[in-house]
């Protein structure tokens, strides 16, 4: 209700304000977006705070599980698992050996535990990004109007300085890992949505027409033709989302994310260049691992290349 009254007062003030030409921008004309946002957020938290708490608890629970198991496993077993996944994705001996070596170097930097914490956050943030990004991307590909409506929102999300949305995230989830995961999600989801949309739209129209000619329903075409053929682009989206997420790792540590980002932040606060460098290199290694694995899966699913 108070939103309606404040809007009408503003409109009235604005109309009268235009009567006088002054050097100063008419005061009555100013949009109090600040106040609106803050009061809106407050009422959101007041009314739906329970929901945010539930989400917070669920994610925290999941994060603890994953982080716990990554930390509970012996380091060599984790390396073995990652190398096996990399091998499965790429069938490249050199990649497997290279990844194993770089993971060992991380261990030598005494950053193993922090790397596992960051990895856990990345896994959850990326999973949420994929689970939410792909359906929105599919929706966006289904109509040019929806695409036109969503595109500017994505542009905004990507150009908005990331510090800006750290504030409301903290507002909802408090300082800590869950807030960090949501901040990462907001940063990482636009490329996932965009590339899902692009991938589906790039599927050969003739192949889709063939499916239509055989009387396939829209959902048969989506699941049986469009999505499988969009898979390489979709995986490029996952890849991009992970890279975005890692880029956010340090910024997210400012609102309480633990792991490698926190080490970089500590290095910054203490003027400890070496500490920052070590943690930074570990982030790079993590990025390379996740990038190579997802990119290899993308290549394997690309049927337009000759087998």
């Amino acid at each position: 209700m108070d939103v309606v009254t404040s809007l009408s007062t503003w409109l009235r003030g604005c109309l009268s304000g235009f009567g006088i030409i002054t050097r100063e921008f008419p005061e009555a004309c100013q949009i109090p977006l600040k106040e609106w946002t803050n009061s809106g957020l407050k009422s959101l938290v007041r009314n739906y705070g329970d929901i945010f708490d539930v989400v917070n608890d669920q994610i925290l629970f999941l994060l603890r599980k994953i982080e716990g198991s990554l930390l509970a496993l012996p380091w060599w077993l984790v390396i073995l698992l990652i190398v096996m996944v990399a091998w499965h994705a790429s069938r490249s001996r050199w990649l497997a050996v290279g990844l194993a070596l770089s993971l060992i170097i991380i261990g030598m930097f005494e950053l193993w535990d922090d790397t596992m914490r960051t990895l856990a956050i990345m896994l959850i943030a990326t999973t949420i990004t994929v689970l939410i990004g792909i359906p929105i991307g599919i929706l966006m590909a289904s109509s040019k109007y929806i695409q036109a409506a969503i595109n500017p929102i994505l542009d905004g999300m990507q150009t908005m300085p990331s510090f800006v949305y750290l504030i409301p995230v903290v507002f909802f989830f408090g300082l800590g890992n869950v807030a960090a995961i949501f901040a990462i999600f907001i940063y990482a989801v636009p490329p996932m949505i965009r590339l899902t949309n692009l991938g589906i739209r790039l599927v050969d129209a003739q192949v889709v027409e063939a499916a239509e000619a055989f009387g396939a329903t829209s959902s048969q075409i989506l699941w049986g033709v469009r999505l499988p053929l969009a898979m390489p682009t979709l995986l490029a989206g996952v890849n991009q989302a992970i890279m975005m997420a890692l880029a956010m790792a340090v910024i997210a540590s400012m609102i309480g994310a633990r792991g490698l980002g926190a080490q970089v932040l500590r290095g910054l606060n203490n003027g400890n260049v070496g500490m920052g460098l070590e943690a930074g290199l570990a982030i790079v290694v993590l990025a390379v691992i996740l990038d190579r694995i997802t990119a290899s899966y993308g290549r394997r699913l690309d049927y337009s290349q000759t087998a």
Partner: peptide, 21 residues
């Protein structure tokens, strides 16, 4: 229409339009 296409018609395309996957 979909039922008609399913039951009564088959179509062959110039550029084959096979499902590559």
């Amino acid at each position: 229409v979909k039922a008609l296409r399913r039951e009564k018609m088959g179509m062959v395309f110039q550029r084959f339009a096979l499902f590559p996957h």
